[in-house]
Design a protein around this nucleic acid. Sequence first.
DNA 1: TAATTCCCTAACCATCCGGTCAATGAACCA
DNA 2: TGGTTCATTGACCGGATGGTTAGGGAATTA
Lengths: 230, 230
Amino acid sequence: MSERLGESVAAANKMNSAEQGAGAAELRAPESRDEILKAAIKLFANRGFHETSMAEVARAANVSKALIFWHFKTKEDLFMAVLNRLLEPYVIDFAEEAGALGEVAQIMQLVELYLMFVRDNASSIRFFVAQLMRGELASDALTGPVMQLYDGYRGLLVDLIGRAQAKDLCLKDFPAAAVARMLLSMLNGTLIEMLFAENADADVASAIAMIRQWLFGGRAGTAKDAPPEL
Amino acid sequence: MSERLGESVAAANKMNSAEQGAGAAELRAPESRDEILKAAIKLFANRGFHETSMAEVARAANVSKALIFWHFKTKEDLFMAVLNRLLEPYVIDFAEEAGALGEVAQIMQLVELYLMFVRDNASSIRFFVAQLMRGELASDALTGPVMQLYDGYRGLLVDLIGRAQAKDLCLKDFPAAAVARMLLSMLNGTLIEMLFAENADADVASAIAMIRQWLFGGRAGTAKDAPPEL
DNA sequence: TAATTCCCTAACCATCCGGTCAATGAACCA
DNA sequence: TGGTTCATTGACCGGATGGTTAGGGAATTA
């Protein structure tokens, strides 16, 4: 079955590109299609792919099951559409965010961006992580965009940390790549803590403070950047 | 359905205890039962509960489907047995491990224990995390033991860090609980990095070094504990 | 007005899944 | 030897699921 799914994924991706190029199906029956998508997102998110039946989606969207198959050729097609819809907010242009700030401020801004993003998208992130964990479906369609985003983020961190180290602004006991990796581990650890325990806000501030202390600790001359509030 | 599952979980747990007391079913048809369990573990692990059919398990175990239902009353029963089997190695007595070492050495030993355990049980941990992420099944049977273990571990860390702080052996800028929480975030972040990228060993040593530096950084008098190798 | 296209549905179908059952051979008692 | 329990199986069942089909109503077009 995994073979069939793989083909479906590729096919769906191609079709999606084609659709966007021709601008066809996106505009035809927008309302019901959207209703279906919203219902599917909810159901897939907290029940998974295999546990969610098309009949359930139909009922939740107040349409007939057949209409779903009119909008989306197969169940996998629907799933791909859900993925793409959920992936939209994940397109962040990190480089844009930081203006002409110093390295320290830029790093801390990236850290906050990460944690705030996690806090604001907890449910869909939980969905993605669960999906990533098992190779269940769409390993390409998922791993691709997410990992691309992730690598971009890490690249930015490595670069910034390297420059901060050169200026003696930040922890220098380890190579920039190692520091960036550990920083990402901290962030990911905080992420999964936020995903499991729903306390969110309280810990974020504490985590940020500790990360700042770790990276820029006793070093002077970095106090100029006031910590932006959440 | 979640209700029924909850009951099944409780029932399965009780039965297990009873079985061990009487030593009954464990010895009757050990061979085939074991074969089924091994096959189920594999399939459940990398396909999940709902995506794995009893027919598949039967085929993988070279037995008839009916035999599975003779050994395990329901599919959930089989799943519970798989959980218990996988949970076995997770029973670690942390307190036992550390003898009369200093706080610093004990903390580092706990850190290493954690990372080594993750490294050696990567596949089943991936399974558990995926299972925990969605509330899919066995939330009680899983959350219970795992969280108990986790809380015990954190408790030990908080205690040790507190004592190390009192002796001025370790990072004192934050309360012990916060330090312990961040340490656990670091560990969990490293964990998921290990789960996704299968490089394992290389990063573990680096992670340990960075954690030691973070916790005990510039402080003197802690060099007496030689870093035990992995 | 007649034809065509779009959106939507009830009913249906083939397949697969969890679970049951009657039967059967082997081992162990009597 | 004959009966009882244990271990195992092929055949079967009701239900649910992904997917199809034939058709209908409302716009749009000609």
